[in-house]
Design a protein around this nucleic acid. Sequence first.
DNA 1: TTGTACGCGTTATCAC
DNA 2: GTGATAACGCGTACAA
Lengths: 329, 329
Amino acid sequence: MSSMMKIARLCGVSVRTVSRAFSKTEYIDAGTRERILAVAEELGYAPNLAARALRTGQSYTLLAIAGTMDELHTAKMAAFERAVRNVGYSMHILFLPGNSGEDQCLDGVVESVAAQRPAGVAVFPGGEMDRAALARRIEARGFSCVAIDPQGARCSGVKIDRGQGVFDAVAYLRGRGHAHMAYAGPVSDRSRLRGFERAVREFGVDATILAEESFSDQAAGGARAARQWFALPRRPTAVQTYSDEFAMGFLAALHDAGARVPADVAVVGFDDRRFAALAWPPLSTVAQPNEEVGRAAAELLFAKLSGEEAPRGGWSRTVPTRLVVRGTT
Amino acid sequence: MSSMMKIARLCGVSVRTVSRAFSKTEYIDAGTRERILAVAEELGYAPNLAARALRTGQSYTLLAIAGTMDELHTAKMAAFERAVRNVGYSMHILFLPGNSGEDQCLDGVVESVAAQRPAGVAVFPGGEMDRAALARRIEARGFSCVAIDPQGARCSGVKIDRGQGVFDAVAYLRGRGHAHMAYAGPVSDRSRLRGFERAVREFGVDATILAEESFSDQAAGGARAARQWFALPRRPTAVQTYSDEFAMGFLAALHDAGARVPADVAVVGFDDRRFAALAWPPLSTVAQPNEEVGRAAAELLFAKLSGEEAPRGGWSRTVPTRLVVRGTT
DNA sequence: TTGTACGCGTTATCAC
DNA sequence: GTGATAACGCGTACAA
């Protein structure tokens, strides 16, 4: 690997002059620079970022911590990366080990982060680890850190207004004439449910909750919810589901039993995964704002990096969802 | 950020001794080591990887180059990362800019790679860039590089035996009694088609090609293929499609027209995307061996890194697909 | 306009 | 067992 030293020797100048040749602001003879750049090109010279980071103390590298590489998470990460690249930073990824959420494992992650000396850190969703705790410990080590879509209500970061998303969906369905709706999904996560309850109150629609306990197999949960729906004496004409996967299970069970969608029942998913548009019928859904979340995370992180004061209410941003109307409503 | 120097001062020893304390192999007094490690722990010390890499010339970091972050690609990358982590390496990601496949852009990527001084490089699928050319230029710069699922037949890397996958699917369908089958999809990509043609020849089944030109909107292509199927005087009873997305468009069009699956026609996808199991009916498909590809890529790369000779036939590995039978067959 | 000299944090070589 | 000291490649204060 060629270094500045090598180029310097070949050009008969000092290393300092070579360094100058690559600088945009320093004074150097035009001819000398040209000669140096030519030789550098010839040698396939590229600056050693490790050496530069060591010398300047700045890596211009942000670290993305990822749990499971879900389609939704990667979309946010990709948006984050683009935003970050636009201002001259590069992004590295640290995958969380999938096996455990133990503190010992968390220690290891914090250690890896510190060893890399990133300019900042973004903790993306996915995995079993306590991401809020992780973010706190990373900040305690002196690194600026932003959490994307954090679990708890109290922890700061970029948040998605799921409640409002479901509220909007109910509002839309109400406008289409539905007067009796159901919410189907795990009830221990109240993020979406809150919006549903607020909306049914506000619009005065009859409401049924098709409650589910498990988070594990969403599609199976959807199938169970469909059986609940069939068993109802008075069936809701529209169902807001917890997720697109849940909706798929729900739809499949409906198809199997011969129910027609949306004639017998309208169905709305949540997430807008890529398959939502491919489903039959194409699934109406509340889209996660992946692009905006990624951008907002970058902005938030750069604001922290620039040493700004925390805004009133802490370092948080809430991003709205978007209703996507397709064939199931 | 605390360094070895700081710890050394606090412990009243030299930096060299601190360095020794962290080494597993060097001789050091047990008491001294304990004292040093305690202070390091106290200070939240983590070694500066940039400095270490600069000094040793080894980064123990592999670079993954990613185009589009598709579900299938990320699954391969995650498997690669796990394999790599298991032997003490870490993986960084370089996203390709989405806009152009121009040489100028390719230059930039090669430059970034060189600047990072990775121990090795893995070029993952996705994006419009000429990945074979990229891999070649990276190797020309002196970096070991492995291409995952490369386009051309001639370029080395980890390959997926798509032809055999389709062959297996046809064999399975033949066993289920189907005597007239169709292949539906873009015909300019012959990877799957070859296996289809070989199988129909071998098993003596009637064959129809529902040819498609465009790669862009797979679902729309599937819908067009379904219309072709309906228009056929003698309809094939089973259809191997180009991809799961293509199959979804195909299925949707069949549903719309009232055809029953698999009673009227059996459908097989390709890829085994997550939604395949969620589709209605659940989609039988040829699964991409993401795990195995990721692992094979790591093994191939480490073999190159260790300075082994290239095996006869070049640095390549071909990984078999797996037929997943679900509801559409 | 150019060169000298130093330091970032680590590891490796040598002498003690 | 331990401590000076050099070196990795780069950026920068300072001198020429």
